[in-house]
Design a protein around this nucleic acid. Structure first.
Lengths: 244, 244
DNA sequence: CCCGACCAACTGGTATGATAAGTTGACCTT
DNA sequence: AAGGTCAACTTATCATACCAGTTGGTCGGG
């Protein structure tokens, strides 16, 4: 019903404003940022806030800071990591970039089977029980929003159970990205969420240590959602999709 | 011969010290950090430096900062993104975590074929020519270090050509990770680097738009390196590998 | 002419103080 | 017991110094 009041610090505001200007090519790669003191005047904040924002841009690989020289904008496609994905998917006006969305779908489609495979190899009955428990709750779910959250919990458990740290970190980055379009995904992926049967079969495969069976379950499960998502995106071919 | 003098700012030092203490569980999830002022005393730096470091920890998903309350350490396996991988792979004493290394190898093995597949679908002759050019230079290479760099350039071009933004960002994160063990990889992956023939076949598949052929080339190419790497890691089963 | 020393005017980096604003928990009132 | 009040924390912000590195010039000796 009620949602938390969003509060952002000044340095957050500095960071996001500059990041958005960079990813929108308003500040192209190779261009110079104004000096810290000038930025203070332009943004109307103190130097500490500007410095914190710039340091975070540097950490994100979007700029390089040199003492004595100007701060340079880097090519974010070459320097930034997966954590930039949420900002690339949705721009400041709330438009979703279709090309980015397709990229994410593809990555999910590629990783999901191997996550399931490795989970079956290393998860054991403990993981299988955990998955079964989530499946049970999904069977009883009435609300689609609940179902969506539980489907996510299922994958979170699977990734944890895979014991693959790289997958887990990538999954975290993807989660933050999904959250930006969470409500849109709810309707689009509804059929995938309701495909509890396949998730149950996947859990069984995990229990039996059937790696290839688990991978096949994962493949067929995410195929549903990927197809639905691509169908939605096809309507907007290479355009931008206005989010509600 | 000579290498650049590494200089790090105080806020960098603060960030890295705290990050290392968090990923080494010296500061476990749920624990509270000292207040900014106390940290200033303990670390012997000014508050600005501490604040910049803390803000970066927050951005990395390692802590949550609340005004009025203590700064809490988060579970980095649940909150951090792929950009944390370099810090997890090698600890402060220069020991490589074998489990992390295996995770990365697996991710590479999973993503590589689909990167090649998508590159073949979308790269076209322009990409193929670029790849051919790199292959030619690799054939002439004498130094293993040069070969390593060019092999990397090859994959960089392939990922760019795939047009998949998510892959590209993940690739950037992986690159920063590889760089931390660059010299170790040189010897271990030597056989993969010398397998220029398969890269040439992959380029041909890209030129012909043969997606599945490209994927198969990629699979067989990275299999060599992955096997070699796993063989090295097997010696150190679940232990840590001291880097030179 | 060239090269190096020098210097002034930038740049970011550090330090310190004061003030505002949010959180918490004890305590007191009703 | 529920709710209001307040003191003692915390982080957030601001302002102003000064330190340190880079840059680009001028200048003088080879």
């Amino acid at each position: 019903m009620f949602e938390a009041i969003a509060r952002r610090s000044l340095s957050d505001a500095v960071f996001h404003q500059l990041m958005n200007r960079i990813v929108s090519d308003e500040l192209p790669a190779g261009s110079e940022l104004p000096s810290e003191r000038v930025l203070c005047d332009m943004l109307g904040v103190n130097r500490g806030a500007v410095r914190e924002g710039l340091k975070r841009l540097q950490q994100a690989g979007l700029v390089t800071i040199r003492q004595g020289g100007p701060t340079l904008v880097e090519d974010y496609l070459s320097g930034a990591g997966l954590e930039l994905l949420p900002s690339l998917l949705v721009d400041t006006e709330g438009h979703m970039k279709v090309a980015v969305a397709r990229s994410i779908i593809r990555m999910r489609q590629t990783l999901a089977p191997d996550i399931a495979r490795q989970a079956a190899q290393r998860g054991g009955p403990a993981l299988a029980s955990e998955l079964d428990k989530i499946v049970e709750r999904m069977r009883d779910a009435t609300d689609l929003a609940e179902l969506q959250q539980m489907a996510w919990d299922y994958w979170q458990a699977l990734v944890r159970g895979s014991g693959n740290i790289a997958y887990r970190l990538a999954f975290n980055s993807l989660q933050k990205t999904y959250r930006t379009i969470w409500s849109l995904l709810r309707e689009t992926l509804a059929d995938e969420f309701r495909d509890v049967a396949t998730l149950a079969r996947l859990a069984t495969a995990v229990r039996q240590g059937d790696a290839e069976g688990a991978a096949m379950c994962a493949t067929s499960h995410v195929r549903k959602g990927c197809a639905a998502m691509n169908a939605v995106l096809d309507v907007y071919r290479d355009a931008e999709l206005k989010l509600p």
